[in-house]
């Protein structure tokens, strides 16, 4: 029998934490519970918490709207953005962590400041450039836009991780005859896998939920992402709340699952990148 020792000062913390958990979780719980309630119970006063279960809203959403298409579009755009940004960030983060060169500090600061640029400043010029290149309402246009945000961020997070790995690791590989780039790919990448996954998850999340550019740069169901689909549901006159909550649930579940699976790596990479950065 293992006894858990809890100090009195700890016990006091629990009721307050329960209040925080309720505040955080209730809106999400209510979203999911409204998505699986029959319409008659969604619009009932008083609201019912535990009710009969139905998939009618999911069925409607999947078979009578373009939601599946939006979901796939989001998946394609977010996945490609993540893969490309990691392939830029891997050498980029490594270069910033390992070498000294002219302008290195200026470049580091520029990368950090790029995260402060208001999206609104980029909205008009990117719209005009994409229009000029014929890339409005295409996957490529959206992916290019997201890369501008994802690449500096992932580079910065990986830089923090590489800085914490001893140099001797790749030097040993180089003595054995690897080039530096080979040493990076064959020796450092396996070691850095948890950080690479965590960074990838974050960049996926950012691309998955992005709203302003997806709204501005896409116009057809062929390219529109899931957030824009949800927005068109709530923009209708006489909103079908069951369908809105079902599509919101559909958009939330994949990243909640991703977050829970990679929770440990995600938290440690993210906080180290932010705090030690």
């Amino acid at each position: 029998m293992k006894l858990i020792k809890i100090k009195p000062s700890q016990i006091v913390a629990y009721p307050f934490l329960v209040v925080f958990v309720c505040f955080s979780v209730f809106p999400i719980f209510w979203m999911v519970s409204s998505a699986i309630k029959p319409s008659t119970e969604i619009y009932s006063i008083p609201p019912k918490i535990f009710t009969s279960f139905t998939l009618q809203h999911f069925r409607y959403m999947l078979f009578e709207t373009h939601t599946i298409r939006y979901f796939l579009n989001s998946l394609i755009v977010a996945s490609i953005t993540t893969l490309i940004s990691l392939s830029f960030a891997l050498p980029g983060g490594y270069g910033l962590a390992r070498f000294n060169f002219k302008m290195k500090n200026a470049i580091s600061i520029a990368i950090l400041f790029s995260q402060m640029l208001p999206l609104a400043v980029l909205l008009i010029p990117l719209y005009m450039v994409l229009a000029f290149l014929g890339l409005l309402d295409t996957y490529l246009g959206l992916i290019l836009t997201y890369l501008g945000f994802a690449i500096p961020l992932t580079t910065w997070l990986l830089r923090g991780f590489f800085a914490g790995i001893p140099k001797e690791l790749e030097e040993a590989a180089m003595i054995d005859g690897c080039t530096r780039f080979q040493a990076l790919m064959r020796v450092l990448v396996p070691v850095a896998m948890p950080a690479i996954i965590a960074t990838g998850v974050y960049s996926f999340m950012v691309a998955w939920e992005e709203f302003l550019f997806a709204l501005s740069f896409t116009s057809s169901d062929r390219v529109r992402t899931l957030p824009i689909g949800i927005n068109s549901f709530i923009g209708e006159y006489g909103v079908d709340w069951g369908a809105v909550m079902a599509s919101s649930t559909l958009a939330s579940l994949p990243i909640i699952v991703l977050f829970m699976i990679f929770y440990e790596q995600f938290i440690s990479t993210f906080t180290e990148g932010m705090i030690k950065g």
């Binding site: 809106p27 549901f233 709530i234 939330s252």
Partner: peptide, 12 residues
Amino acid sequence: PWIVPGIAAAAS
């Protein structure tokens, strides 16, 4: 809440 997409949060 930080994980949930912004538009899903707005709708909820």
